[in-house]
Design a protein around this nucleic acid. Structure first.
Lengths: 337, 337
DNA sequence: TTTTAGCACTCGCATAGGTTGAGTGCTAAA
DNA sequence: TTTAGCACTCAACCTATGCGAGTGCTAAAA
């Protein structure tokens, strides 16, 4: 009985057993260990010959000839596909109760989601804000403060507000502020950030007295967009020290350099296919930097709108079941908010 | 010729030479090495006997009997005192020119100061905002936005503004907002944050209709104070991988745990004596966590007002001369702004 | 054809012994 | 007080050796 992977049921069982075991113990698994824990009714010799085949097929590696087998990237990929296609395995109830006992309100969970994911999964987590394509400016207001300074407020459709004090230009126009507010509203309100940023000539037609003000507002919008786009929050960097693969300083170094490299992270999590909910990248040998690393992330929505991605970075030997269930559960909390 | 350290000039010279050498090479120094590089006119035997005395006095350690000597915490302390008391050694001109060529404007330097310090010194850096004791509230304003929501602005004397949208309570008071603004101004303007936070009963005497609003404003002030107090920005965590003492994962782990522990950092840098400009903490053996670590930090002022501390965290074997000059130079830039 | 027992083989790991060389402490003379 | 000289120590490195875990292969059993 085979499917598209070309693996017999027994080989699948062995492969899953092996990955499972490696995820918990981080040690090469011998044929005897598999027999004892998972398949007591066949001999080690049988398992050995299966292992040899699986190795030939690229699912397993052998650190050296007299060691047990270790899963390859390909094996991890098989393993997570397997989890994903059998949703029943998610232990939702348990995760839910952990979240419920540790965190009082949903509000708290939303605010600290990255931290919580890191805490509950015991891996380093990552919160990434989506592109700003869907953000629009609702209103722009200039508020008079005191002797020549004013406050500019920009209200966007996702509720956040950017403020900044500016110096008002000298002007003898009556009701300068009121007029400015009207102009600003007509120019910016209802527009998407991208539109605004890409249409520099918007201002030219206006009166000269407002040129400087418009310039400042435009810069604020650009700054806001840039800041939002590059925001990645990382939590629990220390967590990796819990895993023996990071007893080697070089691995730690490598890990830190990835985690601190915003561009790299963006590139990894970037989704080409808009429809997938979970993104699981398991590094291959090609990418030196990502070898032996895995990144699991999920899009999350808020009031139906997609706002970002939340995920976990760690060794390939990762507890995918747990990570996936946590991400899923948190995603649900967000969405039902 | 001795001073309060009780060290002869020759011993001082040897001690300085030894620390200097260890700072660059990170290797135990032998009597022969000192002779060659610093004191060719005495024999190694002489130096050896001096080394033995210095070790007895607690300035030096010997990893094992047939190795050279390594500076102790006490030696580092002696070394930095020495630097501090002879300002001439600062290589200000060089630092200045590095800063000038790498960073275009002073504005840029101020904004990214932590990053710059880390870049130029090649150590992990730390930017810490001072206590909020001197911050006062200049003004509080409620601004009507749209259907029942309003924006609260709190302006402080250091220019920053905290804003938040709130829901206005149902009320049939005419000119609710105007009245509220008056009340808020009279209650909060000119007061120091500490005062406000510690006098919860301020509101009770007021009209009931404003109770909720006052509550919200008070919470904003409390949040602001807390947020400001706990802000520590760390830059260049990876830098430590450049130093051989961090080839041991345990040291890395230890380092990371300190760097991520805001409370610990506060405690380390906290100044008891308000008059010192530089704070140099060289960990002793007592504090397990801080052994073999040093933290150098400087207060920095902005327009004459002290606003925070900027510093560097690294191994005790730190290039104190360089670090101190960089911090000093940046401090000057701030102050002359 | 598949499974199994048996056995020789490989190789990492741990331990022990041997050598080398850097650097010391001590002593006795300058 | 300084110096030369020398014996001594010890980490670092290498080699040898045994052990044991785990394999691959083969030939017989199912």
């Amino acid at each position: 009985m085979k499917d598209k992977t070309g693996l017999s049921e027994r080989r699948k069982k062995i492969l899953n057993a092996l990955v499972d075991s490696y995820i918990t113990d981080a040690e090469p698994i011998s044929s005897a260990a598999i027999k004892d824990k998972y398949m007591p009714d066949v001999s080690t010799a049988t398992i050995r010959s299966e292992l040899a085949t699986l190795e030939e097929m690229g699912y397993l590696n052998q650190p050296h000839i007299s060691a047990g087998r270790v899963p390859s990237s390909k094996a991890y990929k098989f393993y997570v596909d397997n989890i994903l296609s059998s949703e029943a395995q998610f232990d939702e109830q348990e995760i839910k109760s952990v979240l419920a006992t540790k965190y009082a309100s949903i509000k708290e969970i939303v605010k600290d989601s990255a931290k919580i994911v890191s805490d509950v999964t015991n891996y380093t987590s990552m919160l990434m804000i989506s592109s700003t394509d869907n953000i629009t400016v609702n209103d722009v207001k200039v508020i008079d403060m005191y002797d020549g300074t004013a406050l500019v407020l920009i209200v966007t459709n996702n509720g956040s507000i950017k403020d900044k004090t500016i110096k008002l230009p000298e002007s003898n126009i009556a009701n300068y502020i009121e007029v400015a507010n009207g102009l600003l509203y007509r120019t910016f309100a209802g527009k998407r950030l991208v539109e605004i940023v890409h249409s520099h000539n918007v201002i030219d037609a206006q009166l000269k007295d407002f040129e400087q003000l418009f310039e400042q507002v435009l810069n604020m919008i650009i700054d806001y967009k840039n800041a939002r786009e590059s925001q990645i929050q990382i939590e629990g960097k220390d967590k990796i020290f819990n895993y023996p693969e990071y007893n080697d300083v070089n691995n730690v170094k490598n890990f830190m350099s990835i985690v601190n490299d915003q561009d790299k992270l963006h590139e990894i999590v970037k989704d080409k296919d808009g429809s997938i909910e979970f993104s699981i990248k398991i590094g291959t040998e090609d990418d030196e930097q990502l070898s032996d690393m895995a990144v699991v992330s999920a899009k999350y929505k808020f009031s139906g709108e997609e706002v970002g991605q939340l995920g976990v970075i760690g060794p390939q030997r990762m507890d995918y079941k747990k990570v996936l269930s946590v991400l899923k559960e948190i995603g649900n909390l967000f969405d039902n908010n």
